[in-house]
Write a protein that binds this DNA or RNA. Structure first.
Lengths: 157, 157
DNA sequence: TTCGGTGCAAATCATTTGCAGGCGG
DNA sequence: CCGCCTGCAAATGATTTGCACCGAA
């Protein structure tokens, strides 16, 4: 399944972005070798915004220059190294996006159920609530997934 | 993949619950025949709290008294009839829980990443925020998924 | 040189679908 | 009696894994 790829104007994107080299350093710190497939995938995710599926990455960005199985394996490694984050769109397909350590503001997405276009929602008012509930029940290591769905203006035909 | 089944004390559960008969009426209103598999599945979801996967339902609750394919088909029908709700735990497995029309307060879950035990979080402070963002961007028909994850006290060994 | 990483193909897992027979309304 | 439903088996789609070879450190 392939998602609509769409460049999104990201108002909060100011200077001081992560660079490819910085990301490569993070790979090294995590004892991950700098191989061609990994370079391609990290670069693709740095240059394209929005969560993408393994298939998206392989067919649209790196033009089949590495095997799909390698893309899956790489995405798992990158997530463990906290370079990318896994997003859940509720359709059984894993999608990933870069975590920019310089702009690590936690954010969410507004996804069109029809065309799967993704918009960024630069807000999360949940942190406090979440931690409160979790602590009260003795849970540790807490995280959450939050995604919004709807029909975008284009698809309301 | 099978989820840990655990009865949960649900503080907000007072009298005036849905009954099996009421649910059967809803089925009929939606032009769904009252067949043995459907009765079994609805009953299972009424008597057990917490989102369950198709496999959970078939193996734990109805003891293979109907085909797995039928469970999947039934769950889809029940969701369309708004008798059950689909939940997303981010592990590629669809889980469903009953929607009690008498206590239809929107709620979320706190899931242990290890044992998959589910606790109910009786709060959603998002409705307003959500609708605000969505409207601003011309989205209609808006919904959201929100689930919390962590490590439960038991699994912190 | 040494493992970790890769490509390829086969396996796995959740879910869906085609089809012929069965039964609820 | 008429379709909707079901069981069974096969198909599908995403993801994972086994294995032999290869190349980054």
């Amino acid at each position: 399944m392939v998602t609509m790829v769409k460049k999104i104007s990201h108002s909060s994107q100011v200077a001081n972005h992560v660079t490819l080299d910085e990301l490569f350093q993070v790979l090294k710190k995590n004892k991950l070798k700098l191989t061609p497939p990994r370079k391609l995938i990290v670069e693709a995710l740095l240059e394209n915004h929005g969560p993408f599926s393994a298939e998206d990455i392989q067919t649209k960005f790196i033009k089949k220059n590495c095997d799909l199985a390698t893309v899956y394996r790489t995405l798992i490694s990158l997530e463990e190294a906290r370079i990318i984050r896994r997003c859940e769109f509720g359709d059984g397909i894993a999608r990933y996006e870069l975590i920019d350590p310089h702009h690590s503001h936690h954010h969410h997405h507004l996804i069109c159920k029809e065309c799967k276009t993704v918009e960024v929602i630069d807000a999360c008012e949940l942190e406090n609530t979440v931690n409160k509930f979790a602590k009260k029940r003795g849970f540790t290591n807490v995280s959450h997934i939050l995604e919004f769905f709807g029909t975008c203006p284009n698809c309301q035909a």
